[in-house]
């Protein structure tokens, strides 16, 4: 598995004056779950595309700095080779269906066929990916007949079957209904602890707080902060960056309930419960 280092990354889209990514440096350890947050146009997707090598290999423009996965410099590797190291899941599940395959099973095999994976190995990987994403029952279904959530899980299965070391999920639930969203988050939860580095861009802060080891807060292409969810969501200036803290953090802020060790506000239900129990003992008023 790979560690990811970004060093002074700068990028400007062709025909624009503003830097979409402005001197971003951060380091991610193998197997970490990283959340990326920020308002629209803050550079979240651009950062993901730079990690996946789509910037500057697919999107041209002014590029500076380095993205390193272990000792591989992303810029120097063609996307079709890098996809074995970095997998990407995009927002719109419909647009990730290749349109060239008749069943879900064949659709998941698409990337493996392109990479020249032998048939037996291909079958093994597809079966595992389908099992992990709980889509084995859709095996023979026509990909376009799936619901948004099922389609997105199929896309994730297609990516993880390629055995990448890093998976980027760029707002994977933004176009889904609540049920589809829940299906995808359950799939994401299963990916945690698999030893894969996961980078998730998401507007649902509760989910970011629930899964992330660390969170990167971006604004106008600049990395404002990169720290634990507790520290990020406890920032007093968070709203200034167009981000609303998870509801548990908001309650914590209102009631001035902080986690004893860190002095931060709780970000998940579990943390909120712990803080409340500490504060009120077993007093039912607090519970």
């Amino acid at each position: 598995m790979a560690s990811l280092n970004i060093e002074h990354l700068k990028y400007k889209y062709p025909g624009t004056d503003r830097l979409a990514l402005n001197d971003i440096s951060l380091s991610i350890e193998t197997g970490e779950f990283i959340g990326i947050i920020g308002r629209n146009e803050s550079g979240k997707s651009s950062l993901c595309q730079a990690i996946a090598g789509l910037i500057p290999n697919f999107y041209k423009g002014a590029y500076g700095g380095k993205v390193l996965i272990d000792d591989i410099e992303v810029k120097k590797v063609p996307v079709d080779e890098l996809c074995e190291t970095v997998g990407t899941v995009f927002q719109n599940p419909f647009n990730q269906v290749t349109g060239a395959k008749a069943t879900v099973y064949e659709e998941i095999a698409f990337g493996l066929e392109n990479m020249g994976v032998p048939k037996e190995e291909m079958i093994r990987r597809i079966d595992r990916a389908m099992e992990l994403l709980d889509i084995s029952k859709y095996r023979d279904r026509y990909p376009f007949d799936l619901s948004g959530g099922q389609m997105q899980r199929m896309a994730i299965a297609g990516v993880i079957a390629m055995h990448p070391q890093v998976i980027i999920l760029d707002e994977p639930t933004s176009q889904l209904d609540p049920q589809g969203r829940e299906e995808v988050f359950q799939a994401v939860q299963k990916l945690c602890g698999q030893g894969i580095t996961i980078i998730l861009v998401e507007h649902n802060m509760e989910k970011i707080a629930q899964y992330s080891n660390r969170v990167a807060l971006l604004d106008a292409g600049t990395l404002i902060d990169f720290d634990t969810p507790q520290k990020i969501f406890s920032r007093v200036d968070l709203e200034q960056y167009g981000v609303e803290a998870p509801v548990y953090t908001q309650i914590g802020k209102r009631l001035n309930l902080t986690i004893e060790d860190t002095g931060c506000y709780p970000v998940t239900l579990e943390e909120a419960k712990t803080v409340l129990l500490r504060k009120g003992g077993n007093d039912p008023v607090w519970l």
């Binding site: 996946a52 789509l54 697919f58 063609p78 996307v79 079709d80 080779e81 996809c83 074995e84 970095v86 997998g87 990407t88 995009f90 647009n95 990730q96 290749t98 698409f110 990337g111 493996l112 066929e113 392109n114 990479m115 020249g116 994976v117 032998p118 048939k119 291909m122 896309a155 297609g158 990516v159 390629m162």
Partner: peptide, 15 residues
Amino acid sequence: LALEVRGFNSRKKKT
């Protein structure tokens, strides 16, 4: 983009 990140342009021999 989705095709690109699934190795569509790969020069490897397809299986």
